[in-house]
Write a protein that binds this DNA or RNA. Structure first.
Lengths: 340, 340
DNA sequence: AAGAGCATTGACAACGTTGACACAAGTAAA
DNA sequence: TTTACTTGTGTCAACGTTGTCAATGCTCTT
């Protein structure tokens, strides 16, 4: 049995296929009686408008989510956020994992735009930091939304969802300072990592504002991994003046640090407070549960999707404004007042 | 500047647009000289065939990956496997997260099939176990491939990729028995979870084959989470006759068990061996690194994708056969010979 | 040299939809 | 009563491809 087309419905309802099209698209100027008849026929034949033909006459109903991120939790949260918005609006999501070190991304995306497969693109770091890429995509008529770390959008090229890492780092540090900690180690400094830079900046800012100095040796370089977290914690715990708290740049580092603390017979948080960043599953899969910063990835992604869809619908880049997201401290069990 | 169409290319090259179509589709019977001219024009105009129009005349070039799984690592690995295959074959992936408890899945997918958005579907557990759903989708002309746990495909409805959990459970248990363990606890029995059932079956089989009995009290019910792992380990460690090894049904459980062992001042693996299952990032993000079973999710997914694509291309369900995957033990540092 | 056969190319319809426009009938304004 | 506008409906072209078939010209038989 072939799939029914609009013409089959029209024949059954005894009207022209254009009238059926009108009913399907909820256009005005269809009499109640006819509309009813048509809807009846649609149900009877189980008719589904052909999405492809539709796209051909209108614009693409798909957007691409481009990522280059080893953190599957992050990707899935973003992805789910985008999808939830797409479902609401009747759009489709095409995912595009990539390697940001490859020059191919731009061309691949351009090809998808050019072939009408997608109309919009959501870019995450570090791709979203690549100004050339954005400009190139824009020149190809893509609607682009970027998710970036930073207090403010860096330019006016395309709308940006900026996540305020400085503020988050500031809040978290302030929380630790208020608990009474004075010697806080920062684990996970990474010069080429925007988020890391923002978080240290907030870390410093909080100290300055409180009129406190901090030991530069307490800022440790490292990767965003469990193992690097163990290494960095090892360094820090071996120092003559051991910190009373550890600010880990993400939850994996924090989990590694917690583990290393235990290996050194230190209880968390009684002997040493350790906080994370991201509120990933890790945060509740380690013991104690991590006090951390919640990054509302799902919401950010959903907002980004809503923006691109808006831009695609109105065919205008300037229909939406950039938007900032501030992150909040989630208090759990891995930090407390320092022991005297 | 509008996107160039096949007709623009034809005009520039001074041939009919049908000839251009032939060149683009690499059809035979085009003279070298003409082909060259056309390719030149294509490059000059930066022409991209309109994917949508193409789909309308042929069949859909998209397949759906349907999942209902809280494990983001699993989802991402599958997803990446499918995409890698899609890229090679010029297909597109549409992801469809869902709630298997909802009755909507079938209708949603049927709508996507009906509207020509997708042609094939890859189903993962527990959705793939739902025979009604499969039958329904098949009746809607979908090409379906299922990924299931089990030694053999349960029916001939649609091709199945079956992962042999019994064999894997068997191998892992055998490994522990060969190390010399005689009291092994099984953490994570779950009556409605096919994989879990298979793994226990292998666990029992290995004992039987070795002519050994096992303590039924050592088979503990629980969820596939870190916290449940802690709970179950707690139960088992409190038993009068403490096991010398723990068979955890997945890596999260194992990580929870490792943690609980440490809380009880037991060294892993010296005092107690703990093995995982799945070889997720968890396995190397806990200390010691977990001896576990590797599940080649990426390969399984890629194979599944290749199958669906084959079925879509030839428009025949019987063009591919079901396929079994056997899993292998990955030896790391969390299991050793029992102390005497 | 003439017909058969093949390689090359083009004209045209078709896919299933939407948009532009036409037309008939009904309704309000003159 | 005529005019003009509104409402409901239909006809047809168009979107950018691919499939069908016909036309051309060439080579190969005999």
């Amino acid at each position: 049995m072939k799939k029914p087309t609009i013409k089959d419905v029209a024949k059954l309802a005894g009207v022209s296929f254009k009238t059926v099209s009108r009913v399907v698209n909820q256009e005005p100027n269809v009499s109640e009686s006819v509309k009813e008849k048509v809807l009846e026929s649609i149900k009877q034949l189980n008719y589904q408008p052909n999405h492809t033909a539709r796209v051909m006459r209108k614009a693409p109903f798909s957007l691409a989510f481009v990522y280059d991120n080893p953190n599957s939790h992050y990707v899935i949260e973003m992805q789910n956020g985008i999808i939830s918005e797409c479902r609401k609006k009747g759009f489709e999501l095409v995912i595009h994992p990539t390697d940001s070190h490859s020059d191919e991304v731009g061309n691949e995306l351009a090809a998808m735009i050019g072939s009408n497969q997608i109309g919009g693109i959501i870019l995450t770091p570090p791709l979203s930091e690549n100004k050339e890429l954005v400009t190139f995509l824009l020149s190809r008529d893509a609607k682009v939304v970027r998710i970036l770390s930073g207090e403010q959008p860096p330019d006016k090229l395309a709308p940006v969802l900026h996540v305020d890492d400085v503020d988050a780092g500031f809040k978290m540090t302030q929380y630790l300072l208020e608990l009474g900690h004075r010697d806080i180690a920062f684990l996970g400094f990474h010069a080429s990592h925007e988020s890391s830079l923002g978080r240290v900046r907030g870390f410093k800012k909080a100290h300055e504002l409180a009129g406190l100095s901090f030991d530069k040796n307490f800022i440790i370089d490292g990767e965003f991994t469990f193992e690097s977290g163990m290494d960095m914690a090892k360094q820090v715990l071996a120092m003559p003046k051991r910190p009373s708290a550890i600010f880990a740049c993400n939850d994996e580092i924090a989990a590694g640090a917690v583990f290393m603390a235990r290996l050194n017979d230190l209880k968390v948080p009684e002997d040493i407070s350790i906080i994370g960043f991201e509120n990933s599953p890790f945060a509740t899969q380690t013991w104690p549960h991590l006090t951390t910063i919640d990054q509302p990835n799902f919401d950010i992604a959903a907002t980004a999707a809503a923006m691109v869809i808006e831009m695609m619908k109105s065919n205008d880049v300037h229909v939406v404004d950039s938007k900032g997201f501030s992150l909040e401290v989630v208090i759990r069990d891995s930090a407390c007042k320092p022991s005297l």
